[in-house]
Amino acid sequence: MRPIALLTDFGLTDPYVGQMHAALMRLAPGAPLIDISHQVEPFGTAQAAFFLAASAPYFPRDTVFVCVVDPRVGTSRRLLGAQAGSQSFLAPDGGLLDLLLDTPGLPEAHIVDLSDAASDYGLSATFHGRDVFAPLAARLSAGEALETLGPPLSREAVMRQTWAKPQAEDGAVLAHVLHVDHFGNCVLSLRQGFLFADAVAGLSLAPGEKLPLRRVRAYAELGPGEPGLLLGSQGFYELAAYQDSVAMRLTLSPGDPVRILYPKGMERQDL
């Protein structure tokens, strides 16, 4: 049985995660179950997309990922399956796969529409994690091929979100906060490989505003309360402050836009 990884916004107070585990243990006995997180902010698609893209490279090559952050559960929204290398991904069509599918170096993903396959299940219209995604994941874990579960979709047919890709502007790059971690660091939609100069010119959170910002390699290179830009361990750039919450200092939350200002004369690169 292939391992199954779970990523949801269900939290740990209600019985939902336990019921998903129970359904998978019944339908895919012996399959290892791994929890990425169930503490995604409610309806936090951008945060979930970051968790998935950052985590998938560290999982076994044959893992089946079940990603359920689904504000439109029970409606006519599509259910997606994606096969990238030997890993399989199940998610609603709402942008949750955006960052994953745009990962540099990822094998070309084959995407299928699982909506018809999902119609075979569905004991409730409000808990497709347990009633639809779990049975589909169990079939994949047992060895069924993803392409047998639905017709192919092009990448262009999959819903895209504006926060998933940085946008070039005159003298700046517009990114979005994907996640605020336990320490108050703000993970941005800027990946490793995006080329900045040795310095950045500043940070803008509102039109015409310019705040000081320094590019550093480690948190401890920053002074007390000083905001900095560094490449974090998850392969994305972060706004951070040394032993302080940059999110609180700058009043930033997931989904907020930020502009990293270039040094004068620097051209944008690797958008």
Rank of each mutant, 00 (worst) to 15 (best):
H179V: 01
A172G: 07
S154H: 02
N185F: 05
T162R: 15
P151I: 01
P152N: 02
A164I: 05
R160T: 03
V173R: 06
V173T: 11
P166W: 12
N185V: 01
A168P: 08
H179G: 05
F183W: 03
Q167D: 00
K165A: 14
R160W: 00
A172H: 12
C186W: 00
G171D: 06
G184A: 12
H182D: 12
T162V: 13
G184I: 01
W163Y: 06
E169Q: 15
H176P: 06
V180P: 03
K165Y: 09
H179M: 10
F183V: 03
E169K: 11
D170M: 04
A157W: 00
H179T: 06
E156H: 09
P166R: 06
A175H: 13
T162W: 13
A172P: 04
A164V: 08
L174K: 14
P151L: 12
S154T: 15
V158Q: 14
V173Y: 08
G184T: 03
V187Q: 13
C186P: 02
G171A: 06
P166V: 10
N185M: 05
Q167C: 02
P151Y: 01
K165I: 08
D181R: 00
V177G: 10
L174N: 06
C186Y: 02
R155L: 15
L178W: 09
Q167M: 05
H179D: 10
H176R: 13
N185R: 00
L178S: 05
V173P: 06
G184W: 00
A157R: 07
Q161H: 05
W163G: 02
R155S: 14
V180C: 09
Q161T: 11
Q167R: 13
V180R: 00
F183C: 03
D181C: 02
D181F: 04
A175R: 11
G150V: 10
E169W: 05
G150K: 11
D170G: 03
P152L: 01
G171K: 04
L174V: 10
A168N: 01
H182I: 09
R155Y: 12
V177I: 15
G171L: 06
P166S: 02
V187M: 07
H182V: 12
A157M: 02
N185I: 00
A157K: 03
R160F: 01
Q167E: 11
P151S: 14
S154G: 15
Q161L: 07
P166F: 11
H179Y: 15
A175G: 07
